[in-house]
Design a protein around this nucleic acid. Structure first.
Lengths: 213, 213
DNA sequence: TCTCCTTCTTAAGGTTTCCCTAAGCTGACA
DNA sequence: TGTCAGCTTAGGGAAACCTTAAGAAGGAGA
């Protein structure tokens, strides 16, 4: 059922999709055909998803791989990235998010830069990892950049604290502190107070215009 | 002829349409005016559609672009998406489909393709956690938002006090007070008295128009 | 190896927002 | 006209968030 939805969604997003229902079939397909990218569910029957990934990288096949993993299987995600996965998405997943990340992966694989993100007077260049405000360069630390990147990719949409922390800290899930708040604070200091809106009790959202007083 | 039909159809669907007949004219129009969305035929005369798209994205213009492409020009479609097109439709196309996709694109341009709940002049966007009344933003507190969300999800259906409280307060933290009434009151103050109808002895209901006498 | 420097996290107030409570009031229904 | 469900109002207090500062951790360069 999960596969059905995923296939339908990605097809609608403009991809040609081959859906292999177990690890063995996936290996068989990957040995004979060439794909732009692979979406790999780590909970595959017959042959474990991680072993498929390991096998693929063992052949020096650089096809971009996006892994799908359950929220409570943190160690799988870490192992997946270690084995050469390019990105991951947590289940239950959002179709738009998968489509967007796939597109980014395929772009990168072709050596094409990801498009610049713009919101108001802020501009973020993922390839150069640079940010400008009103045309003027702004220096951000790595964490600040990643956080801003996430927010801009989801502009006008509330991101929960949980989501942000999960994306920001791939390995160490339990960041039991207000680190996020501190980074938000630094971003606001550098980019202006209007860019990032607090949604009390939920999270944060990047948005262009301030609300009507 | 294709353009004629498209313009007529989109106009009828409620859009204000400017029809530029070649790539150069399109670039000229796009440099001076601002559009809610662009429908781009890749087979334009004078200046190729893809080059128009490339030019547009080169200026960091994020206007949604829907490309029209012939069924046998698959690679154009792929290039178009890579260059930053937001969606595509194959020729020969279906007018309703184009209209539907345009609607989705325009919405997405201001906050992802999230389903928006609408009732009368009230619109609620769960992704942005925003509410508008007659197009004008209304600021709600978290509790107010959640309550309105519940009511709109069950529009024209009576929700008992009990149901509402259970949903609002993580499993029956039995709020032994009139807190619910207070929030209802605040909502009515912000959104007008007609939206939420009291069903005496039972609960509340969101509904569009006042009852017939 | 040592030192300097950047960056990230932690922690501790300070501040703002919001939510419940409670008490008086209003209007519906008998 | 009495009663009761729901409406209205305002303030205390707590949770959520902001701000600041300092210590840890890591890396670069000598």
């Amino acid at each position: 059922m999960l596969g059905d939805g995923l296939k339908a969604g990605l097809t609608q997003a403009g991809y040609a999709v081959d859906w292999l229902r177990d690890g063995e079939a996936a290996v068989a397909a990957l040995s004979t055909e060439s794909f732009a990218a692979v979406v790999l569910d780590l909970g595959l029957p017959k042959r474990d998803g991680l072993s498929v990934l390991q096998w693929l990288r063992g052949r020096h096949d650089a096809t971009p791989v996006l892994i799908l993993t359950a929220r409570d299987r943190l160690e799988d995600r870490v192992r997946g990235l270690d084995l050469g996965a390019d990105d991951y998405v947590l289940k239950p997943f959002d179709l738009d998010e998968i489509a967007a990340r796939l597109r980014a992966l395929v772009r990168r694989a072709h050596g094409r830069p990801e498009p610049v993100l713009t919101l108001g007077e802020i501009e973020l260049n993922p390839a150069a990892r640079s940010v400008t405000r009103g045309g003027q360069a702004v220096e951000l630390t790595p964490r600040e950049f990643d956080l801003l990147h996430l927010l801009l990719q989801n502009a006008d949409r509330v991101l929960t604290r949980r989501t942000l922390e999960e994306q920001l800290y791939t390995w160490n899930d339990a960041v039991d502190s207000n680190a996020l708040e501190v980074h938000i604070h630094h971003l606001r200091k550098k980019l202006g107070n209007d860019l990032i809106r607090t949604v009390r009790g939920v999270g944060y959202m990047a948005t262009m215009s301030a609300p009507a007083a």
